[in-house]
Amino acid sequence: MTSASSANSKQQTANSKSLLSAVCCVLCAIGALGLPIVLNAYHIEVLTSALIYALLALGLNLIVGFTGVLHLGYAAMFAIGAYAYGMLSVYGRWPFWLGVPPAMLIAGVSGVALGIPALRVRGDYLAIVTLGFGEIVRIAFTNLEQWTGGPNGLLGIGHPQLWLPGRGLFNFGVASSPYYYLTLLCVLIVAGLSVRLSRSRLGRAWIAIRDDELAAACMGIPVLQLKLLAQGLGGAVAGLGGAIFAAKQGTITPDSFDFILSVMVLAMVVLGGLGSVRGAVLGALVLGTLPELLRGFDQYRMLLFGLSMIIVMRLRPQGFFGGFRHRRHVHAA
């Protein structure tokens, strides 16, 4: 009886806790909605980039955070999404809203295709295969000049247009705030879906794979299929981010998708706490805005940026919200 009631009260604490965090999230979202009114254009620009990072971090969190596959070529998925929408827009005059689904699909399929080496390659070897894939994609976009514009970039990508009642056709143009709202909306949707996923049967299976792949396989979890599914979904999220990025910039160059980007997004996920959805968002907001916050230090800013990554990892190795039990060998697999 007592144990039942204590379980009950535990349940209630858990419920009130999750209610509290839900309320916090809603408050943050409302606050985020109002930000463009109080901030200047530069701040909104920085925040918009940080939100695109947040989208990427959420996508990579599905791969690294949930299934524990160390992925070092995530920028390639972002690039594939950006170039897919960019080329549809430049050569086919596709509108943004029609271009996003194919961009997500192509990036997702590439994610699955890249996951296939996972059939044989494991651990750190898989990490370098993904790294190699990321480099191959970037070099290919640089060298296929007749289609991608090469190092000069793909020019003249269309901005999104939206029909608003009473205002007619509204072009997003070059100002940041429409993209800020669009990205915020996407981040909220992807974050919400991630939270739901992490509590579903699928999410529990992913986390089981991350914590102990062998044990998960023994319990009848189809490890390979679920890993590929995570890579596909993660790729699709990156594709969405890429399409928004391409539409916002109007011009994309292969340099925007280098290895450092893959590494930064990974750092955001780890900094936030592996597998934590709000952690991924917070990690992205912190690492995405930190270089700008450090702008006062001028040429020392990237130096301090690297230093702060080292210090955070030392002081808080589990990340901001690393609530999961961590084993020494949670990594790469």
Binding site: A267, M309, R314
Partner: peptide, 24 residues
């Protein structure tokens, strides 16, 4: 200091160190 932590942490520390040294 982080040898006992997860390997991903060590990896991120290594990336931070790389950025630090490159800029130095």
């Amino acid at each position: 200091p982080i040898r006992q932590a997860s390997r991903l942490n060590a990896f991120i520390t290594a990336i931070g160190m790389s950025l630090f040294l490159q800029n130095a």
